[in-house]
């Protein structure tokens, strides 16, 4: 039963991921991402990480996907234009990815000492996660706030209009200086 469920969710997950890449309309891609997220939540549940599974549904399949879809709707993004990829990339990339995939699968299968875990056998409860997150991994947890802060600053900088950035008043003295220097250079 465990194995059947695992394969079921895994199959849906991979199918959703492939569909995400194949679809041409951003909304369809976003919706297949929901499928990927939800089936991943199922896999987490099978691993006995029920808290992570719940968070996966609430945060990723819920909140983040809503943001995604809002953004797509606000941008009014249309269908993608299909572009021809470079031939070199196709010739080297496709076999390369296949070799890498087969290699990793082979190694994982050869060294599989995994067995089905019964539910609640592994510490996946909120208490264990809280202990890891707020004690052992306290520093990475706190440092992540710097990361998010930088991301916000980046959005502010890169999304602002260049015209609004260039305040002539701030740069005028320097500009005049340059102009004068150019002029004096010519006279010489």
């Amino acid at each position: 039963m465990h194995l059947i469920l695992f394969l079921f969710f895994g199959g849906i997950c991979v199918a959703g991921a492939v569909n995400l890449l194949v679809q041409r309309h951003p909304i369809n891609s976003a919706l297949s991402l929901v499928v990927v997220m939800a089936s991943l939540a199922g896999e987490y549940l099978l691993l006995g990480a029920e808290f992570v599974a719940a968070i996966q549904v609430i945060v990723y399949a819920g909140a983040i996907m809503v943001l995604f879809i809002f953004t797509i709707m606000l941008l009014n993004a249309g269908e993608e234009v299909r572009s021809k990829g470079s031939r070199v990339a196709a010739m080297l990339g496709v076999p390369g990815v296949m070799i890498a995939g087969v290699l990793i699968a082979w190694i994982l299968l050869r060294h599989s000492n995994t067995a089905a875990v019964s539910m609640f056998a592994l510490p996946g409860d909120p208490r264990a996660i809280a202990r890891l997150l707020f004690r052992d991994f306290l520093l990475p947890f706190e440092v992540t706030s710097v990361l998010i802060l930088i991301a916000i600053m980046g959005a502010v900088v890169l999304a602002s209009k260049p015209e609004a950035v260039a305040r002539p008043s701030a740069a005028e003295p320097a500009q005049r200086e340059v102009r004068e220097l150019v002029a004096s250079g010519r006279e010489r």
Binding site: L147, M153, A174
Partner: peptide, 20 residues
């Protein structure tokens, strides 16, 4: 100033990047 680039986030990002 010469390039007329807004300075606000620039120095902040350098410092935060250095934290990383």
């Amino acid at each position: 100033a010469v390039q007329r680039i807004r300075a606000g986030e620039y120095y902040g990002l350098i410092l935060f990047g250095t934290v990383g």
